[in-house]
């Protein structure tokens, strides 16, 4: 393997990994706090990308503001859906919340096909040019997106460690009963977490949509990847989701380039099966019952 090829794959791996991590952190927040399988998570990723598309390609409004608008819109949608659909199911068999999120997939992805059409679209990038790194061409766009993702993950980390709401979220994730006894309003934490998790997916959708292209069916693949990562890193673990995201990003970059996308999937699924069976808490997570 030539050095330039290797560098290229490494850079792609980091790039993909950080964006995957954004989606997966959103999912793991929702799982850790509400203990539900949010199977429609990828649909918010898709919706987020389309919000940015309409904002910047159709309305020609500023790109970076568009990401903020997209995140805000999806936050509201996520929070409302949590209040209306998932709150009544809290404490029931996870099968029910799983079924509701399946219903959401049906509605959002088909609704997306009807509204947005089946044609592949692109979000024009705002950064052009690039630089040569160890023989590989690295566009400034990818560089900016990687830095942006990393910054966002760091910001989230600070939010969870330093702010009252963030700490309350961690407390609920660790022990819902104890934290509600300590006076934490778990119902409020639930919709915030759901909104925030969905918004993270939306941002990832914006970034991925800028780098690649967008179609209404892109959501499910994102869900699949996010679940792989979350299982790998441990359900409910934010650092786990970051490292898991990077691992899956690298596997995707290297195996897809060197062998094939199908093999990358098979390796990914076999890995998560083995992890679930032998170390269900993943690399960093805690065991739930």
């Amino acid at each position: 393997m030539a050095l330039d090829e290797f560098t290229q794959m490494t850079l792609t791996g980091i790039n993909l990994g950080l964006m995957y991590a954004l989606i997966a952190i959103g999912l793991t927040l929702i799982f850790g706090i509400m203990r539900i399988i949010q199977y429609a998570h990828g649909e918010f990723y898709m919706l987020g990308a389309y919000v940015l598309y309409y904002w910047s390609s159709v309305l020609k409004l500023p790109y970076w503001l568009g990401i903020l608008v997209s995140a805000g819109t999806i936050f509201v949608i996520g929070a409302v859906l949590q209040l209306v659909l998932f709150r009544p199911l809290h404490g029931k068999n996870i099968l029910y919340s799983l079924a509701v999120s399946m219903g959401l997939i049906f509605i959002i992805s088909s609704g997306g096909l009807l509204t947005f059409g089946t044609v592949v679209k692109g979000i024009p990038s705002v950064v052009t040019g690039g630089v040569s790194v160890l023989g590989a061409f690295y566009t400034y766009e990818r560089m900016v997106i990687s830095i942006f993702s990393a910054t966002l993950i760091l910001a989230l980390w600070f939010f969870l460690q330093r702010t009252t709401t963030g700490m309350a979220m961690r407390a609920v994730s660790e022990d819902p009963e104890v934290s509600s006894l300590q006076g934490i309003n778990t119902r409020r934490i639930h919709w915030i977490a759901f909104g925030l998790g969905s918004a993270l997916a939306a941002v990832a959708g914006c970034l991925m949509g800028t780098l690649l292209s967008i179609v209404p069916t892109m959501g499910f693949i994102a869900t699949v990847k996010a679940f792989m990562i979350v299982i790998l890193g441990g359900l409910g673990s934010v650092p786990g989701a970051l490292i898991g995201g990077l691992i899956i990003g690298f596997i995707d970059s290297f195996v897809t380039t060197l062998i094939s996308a199908d093999v990358a999937y098979i390796i990914g699924f076999v890995t998560i099966f083995v992890i679930l069976v032998f170390k269900p808490s993943g690399l960093f997570g805690q065991q739930w019952d």
Partner: peptide
């Protein structure tokens, strides 16, 4: 091996099996 897992983990492990 699959039946060693429970609840959420079973859903996901069986999902992985189906995909493989």
């Amino acid at each position: 091996p699959l039946m060693r897992t429970r609840a959420v983990y079973f859903f996901m492990a069986s999902w992985a099996v189906g995909e493989v």
